[in-house]
Design a protein around this nucleic acid. Structure first.
Lengths: 139, 139
DNA sequence: ACTTAATTAATAATCATTCTCAATTAGGAA
DNA sequence: TTCCTAATTGAGAATGATTATTAATTAAGT
């Protein structure tokens, strides 16, 4: 999903298309590093100084509710946002907190087999692996 | 792992065995409903009124650091604690927040195959499926 | 251009969790 | 058993993340 498609979806749902929503949507879609709301805010502040942190939170929440992005909450620290909603594995470094997506065909295949066995129909999923990333392992 | 084994581990690590730690450990091990720290506190307050919420937080954190329990943070609401550290799926109702563990032999088998393919060695994992539980689906 | 409801910025309020520190206690040593 | 000391605890203050409030602004249909 690209940012234009998101704007179309907003329109379809009767939601207003604002500069802020456009910028936030575009920005989060462009990231693979799972930023926090604060980080999205800091990045956008440079080109759009009037933007407010509350708007960033509200918009990310809206994107989440619309199923466009994933929310990753942890025991500690702020929520991380992931534009990848396909079945994949979040490789989470327990030391530095970096998160990279691991996506493999067989993960998706297995997942589809699994959910077929359930009587429930999932509305989403989350798969995390906690490990030490290369950088942190060296130290 | 039972609570006596946890006490043995505490001893081994040079950690003091207190009434609070005993009660909190025993309680969380007995639950399958993934309670919050607040809920653990409320339950234990009845038989041990002097217990403090800070101690509950600290002890649950300690158990987590020792790898005895799992911490499940979400985008909203408090952290939930899960004494089941085996590979399993957390079935999370997106409406009422109930969490039940889904454990199947093939989940573990597949998981072991998967992590063999990674060059990283995981220190833990988390698998969630978001869905509507039976009760909430009826409404 | 006009209207109006939705959205925004700014900041106060809230919620969950951690921190601080004086008092208490576990558990090893005498 | 009693003593000693460092670890732990309870109580509440402090912090950090997020949400709520509200007056001002703005998107977008008429």
């Amino acid at each position: 999903m690209n940012d234009q498609q998101i704007m179309d979806l907003f329109h379809e749902k009767g939601l207003k298309i604002t500069t802020q929503r456009r910028l936030i949507s575009k920005y989060i879609l462009s990231r693979t590093d799972h930023p926090t709301a604060e980080q999205v805010y800091s990045a956008l502040e440079k080109e759009y100084p009037a933007i407010s942190l509350a708007t960033v939170y509200k918009t990310l929440n809206l994107l989440y509710k619309l199923g466009i992005i994933q929310e990753l909450g942890f025991g500690e620290g702020p929520v991380r946002y992931d534009p990848n909603t396909a079945v994949h594995i979040n490789m989470v470094c327990t030391k530095c907190g970096s998160i990279i997506d691991y996506r493999a065909k067989d993960v998706e295949t297995w997942w589809n087999e699994l959910i077929e066995k359930l009587d429930a129909q999932p509305v989403g999923q989350r798969i995390d692996i906690y490990y030490l990333c290369e950088k942190c392992k060296k130290k």
